[in-house]
Each structure stands twice: as C-alpha cells, then as structure tokens.
C-alpha cells in the first residue's frame, strides 16, 4: 500500500542493526586507520598522510613482528593438535557423553584469563610447584629458572587459555562427519590411522582452519600473557603497541602497528586456508 519497493523497505528494516555495527565497530577502526598516517610533533597529533609510522613498524619492530607471528603460530598449532585429540575423543570415543565433555571445557572459560596466567606463574616460577616437585624428587638441586619468563611459558599459557576456542569448531566439524563413512572405510580395509588421515581429517578441514584462525588471531594480539610470563624485555608486538599508545603517546605508530598486525595475520590465515581447504571445485 505504501508503494515502496520491497528492497527499500528491507533496507530500512536493516538500518538499526547496520547503524550500530557501523557506529561501534567501523567508525573507530576507520578513525584509527586514518591516525596511522598522521604524525606526532612535540606530543601533539598532526593530521596528514605519511607512511612514516608503517616504515618505523617494519624497520624498528621487524624482528618482533616475526617473533610474534611465530609464537601465535605455535600456540595455534598446539591448540589445533590438542583440541583435535580432545574433540575426536569426545566425538568418537565417549558415546553419549561427548557433548558433556565439551560443555566441561567451556566451563573452564569462566575462570577467566588472569586466573590462568597466575596459575601458570605459580607452576613455573623459581619457587613454584614444578620446581618444588623436582627438588623434592631429587631431580634437580637448585630451582630451574628457565621455566618462566620466556617464549615457551607464554606459548604454554596462551595455548591453555585458547584451547576451548579450538575444541569448539573442531568438535562441531567432527559432529558432521557421518559414522558410516568411518565404517565404510574400515569395511574397505582402512586401518584406524588411514581412516583418520584419509576420511576424518579431510571432512573436518574447515573446522581445523577455523580453530587455527581463532587461536592465531587471539594469540597474535595478546599482550597480557607475555607481560606476566614473557620476561622484562618484551617478546610480543602487543606489548609495544600498548606502550606506543600509552607511555610514548605515539598514536600513529601504535595504530600502524595494529593495522600491520591485522593485515599480516589475515594474510597468514588466508594462506593456511588456501593450503588446507583450497578452492572449492
């Protein structure tokens, strides 16, 4: 009766949701993107269009960039591997209790993030649980100091925190693998290993890549875990993004680092997706 074309009415109906998304998400990001081309003169932001911030990101922070990507990749690989083993067990070896196990892993998320970091600190530090146990067992004489304040500790703690986020997509992918495809493989002579590699894994590739992406992105952007467990000098880019924004008040460099991190992470994930899932055809 209004005579408005359908598409227009539908567009108007979408407007509130779209407005919120734009206001809360795209506008701040766009602003920050603009800032990344500005510069700072005596603690004041000067609008402009200069690539200096990006140049500094890649020259000064280059090695840290690589280190961050490697840590994130290690965390993501660890999560995908352990997550797959866990999800596989819940899907194929737990009968009706599979969903319950998955729920249990989700509950560990309620503990929060800092709790996990502090518990790893309590385990790995010089007078921590691990060292006490080793000394009590007589395996070492003095506390081992290299358990903490290094990349290894950060990788372990991040993987521990992110594991449930890997399990979820992998489990849901495995749920879509029909049981009879496994039976068919067995009937055709496939060993359990061959069935895993040739029938199960290929059917849940998308879930594995999704898990990798979630863990990789979360790990790459993290700055709290390395702050507590990574040692004083800083091992991840996130820590320096924080300091560029806060202590140094260099927003352009902080913003440029953020966008570089996003861009490179997106490239890594796209490469992984192409390599594993490939083009549909």
């Amino acid at each position: 009766m209004t005579g408005w074309p359908r598409a227009l009415r539908r567009g108007l109906a979408l407007f509130p949701a779209f407005g919120i998304l734009t206001g809360l998400f795209f506008v701040p990001i766009a602003l920050l993107f603009a800032v990344s081309f500005w510069s700072v003169k005596s603690y004041r932001l000067v609008p402009g269009f200069s690539p200096d911030a990006y140049a500094r990101t890649f020259s000064f922070y280059g090695p840290l960039f690589i280190s961050t990507m490697l840590i994130a990749a290690a965390v993501a690989l660890l999560c995908v591997t352990v997550g797959f083993v866990f999800a596989y067990g819940a899907r194929f070896r737990s009968g009706r209790y599979g969903d319950l196990f998955i729920l249990a892993t989700m509950i560990t998320l309620f503990g929060g993030y800092l709790v996990k970091i502090y518990s790893w600190k309590a385990i790995l530090s010089a007078n921590g649980i691990l060292n006490s146990a080793l000394i009590w067992l007589g395996l070492v004489d003095a506390p081992v100091t290299w358990f903490i304040f290094n990349r290894g500790a950060v990788i372990v703690a991040l993987a521990h925190f992110l594991l449930p986020f890997a399990i979820l997509p992998i489990y849901s992918a495995l749920r879509n693998v029909p049981d009879i495809t496994l039976e068919a493989a067995r009937d055709l002579g496939a060993s359990p290993w061959a069935t895993l590699v040739r029938v199960v894994l290929p059917q849940c590739k998308a879930g594995l890549v999704a898990a990798f992406a979630i863990c990789f992105l979360s790990a790459a952007g993290d700055y709290v875990t390395p702050m507590f467990l990574g040692g004083g000098s800083g091992i991840m880019l996130g820590q320096f993004i924080v300091s560029e924004f806060s202590t140094r008040f260099n927003w352009p460099v902080g913003a440029a680092m953020s966008f570089s991190l996003m861009g490179v992470s997106a490239l890594v994930i796209a490469a992984v997706w192409l390599a594993i899932v490939g083009r549909r055809g």
């Binding site: 029909p178 009879i180 495809t181 039976e183 068919a184 009937d187 029938v199 290929p202 059917q203």
Partner: peptide, 11 residues
C-alpha cells in the same frame, strides 16, 4: 558392504 545411507566419502 553397501550401507543403508551409502556412507560415501563427501570429500
């Protein structure tokens, strides 16, 4: 065996 739901490998 030819299974009731076939069990073909979708990939």
């Amino acid at each position: 065996m030819v299974f009731q739901g076939y069990g073909l490998f979708p990939h």
